[in-house]
Design a protein around this nucleic acid. Structure first.
Length: 303
DNA sequence: AGCCAGGCTTGGT
DNA sequence: ACCAAGCATGGC
């Protein structure tokens, strides 16, 4: 790829664990490298001894979008030190060394998590890929002929790679707001289609301002996000944590519920309410990081 | 309060 | 090869 090559010197950064931990849904692994898109920029990332090798078509003097996305400036040790010193947390940190939180663009993150409801990660990836392939704008620095018009699931005879991830930006709220529910259902999102459509329209009409949410405190921001169709407490917390950087957000899904029950209340069955209260009080100022460690630990090591 | 919404994956036969 | 059950969140 013509363009910029740079190494971000960073310790304790496990790229694979981070990109595979259910925060983002469009990154693809090829060998030791990962390719994906941040905003309108295409990037290829490779784990190296000294840190992360980044290749992108953007000019080298302006890579803050990528530093910000990767959160390379976060002092992970300092974050880990704030975790409670108990056996489950120590095990999770030990098992997932180098796991990080990314900082995503709010709209892509929000839309992805609206689509995530009652879906497993592989299926979310498929839905998001279809949506982007059909309605996303081509990325800057990518020639037009690489964007072959494909019909997604209608070209089953093509090798799988041909239908995967062309370099396109995630479709804007305006673009999605102009679509029909049928267009969206055809991306296999089922009952999530009207939710995504309504949310896109609420945003396109200016009823909800995703940028303004940055200025609010955690609970105000949560209330605001939950005005969007298809956004309950869990999805709001995912967006607050993964896009807005509210480290105190602690999304509770069934995996986390299972992890808390199994690791912290192995004897007696704890009510959902009790688990929520525990989650909100036990993990400290970077509870969201703790949540990510427990989530990934549960999914990859315990199950 | 409890049921419903798709479609892919997993497990049993 | 096939069918049933499992997944997992918000809206009504």
């Amino acid at each position: 790829m013509a363009g910029t090559k740079i190494i971000f010197r960073v310790r304790d950064y496990d790229l694979a664990a981070t990109l595979n931990s259910g925060q983002v849904f469009r990154w693809r692994q090829t060998g030791n490298s990962w390719t994906g898109i941040v905003g309108k920029n295409f990037a290829k990332l490779t784990q190296t001894d000294g840190g992360i090798l980044a290749e992108t078509s953007a000019p080298i003097e302006d890579l803050n979008w990528l530093r910000d996305f990767l959160q390379v400036k976060v002092d992970l040790d300092a974050v880990l030190k704030t975790f409670p010193d108990d056996a489950p947390m120590r095990a999770a940190v030990c098992a997932c060394r180098g796991l990080r939180l990314l900082r995503q663009e709010p709209w892509e993150c929000l839309a992805s998590f609206i689509l995530s409801s009652t879906k497993q990660i592989v299926q979310i990836r498929q839905i998001v890929a279809l949506l982007c392939e059909r309605f996303g704008e081509p990325c800057s620095g990518v020639s037009a002929e690489r964007r072959k018009p494909l019909r997604g699931d209608q070209c089953g005879f093509l090798p799988k790679a041909a239908t995967q991830d062309l370099p396109v930006a995630f479709p804007t709220p305006q673009r999605i707001a102009a679509l029909s529910e049928t267009d969206l259902r055809n991306c296999k999102m089922g009952f999530r289609a009207p939710n995504l459509l309504a949310a896109a329209r609420q945003i396109a009409e200016g009823k909800i301002d995703l940028e303004k949410i940055r200025e609010l405190d955690y609970s105000e921001a949560r209330t605001e996000l939950m005005k969007l169709r298809g956004v309950g407490g869990k999805i709001a917390d995912c967006v607050l944590l993964f896009a807005y950087g509210f480290d105190s957000a602690f999304p509770v899904d069934v995996w986390i519920e299972r992890a808390l029950q199994q690791l912290y209340f192995p004897r007696r069955r704890a009510s959902e309410k009790r688990l929520r209260h525990f989650a909100a009080t036990h993990f400290g100022p970077h509870a969201g990081y703790a949540q990510q460690y427990l989530f990934h630990y549960m999914r990859t090591k315990l199950k």
